[in-house]
């Protein structure tokens, strides 16, 4: 059981976390943030294991992980 908190304003939607999430539960939001990026969000919180691979790969340092 885990949880990711993605700073929607800092996220630049680069997709690296999406690519490496072992559960495949991250995806770009439909909305854009103030910089015009589609920030990444978790679309199935129950599936998150808190493995933190997303945070490991995040170049924008905008993901916090809880487990």
């Amino acid at each position: 059981m885990g949880k990711v908190v993605i700073d929607q304003e800092r996220c630049k939607g680069c997709m690296l976390c999406v690519e490496f999430c072992p559960k495949g539960i991250l995806a770009p939001a439909k909305e854009v943030n103030s910089k015009g990026y589609h920030p990444i969000e978790c679309n199935d919180e129950d599936e998150c294991t808190g493995c933190a691979t997303c945070a490991l790969m995040c170049p924008s340092v905008c993901i916090e992980v809880y487990r």
């Binding site: 808190g50 945070a55 340092v61 992980v65």
Partner: peptide, 21 residues
Amino acid sequence: MKQVYAYPDALTEVEMRYCPG
């Protein structure tokens, strides 16, 4: 729940200007 990945103390709050990815 325990925090297992946190924003590092040794980084300031300044948002980095690098391109996406």
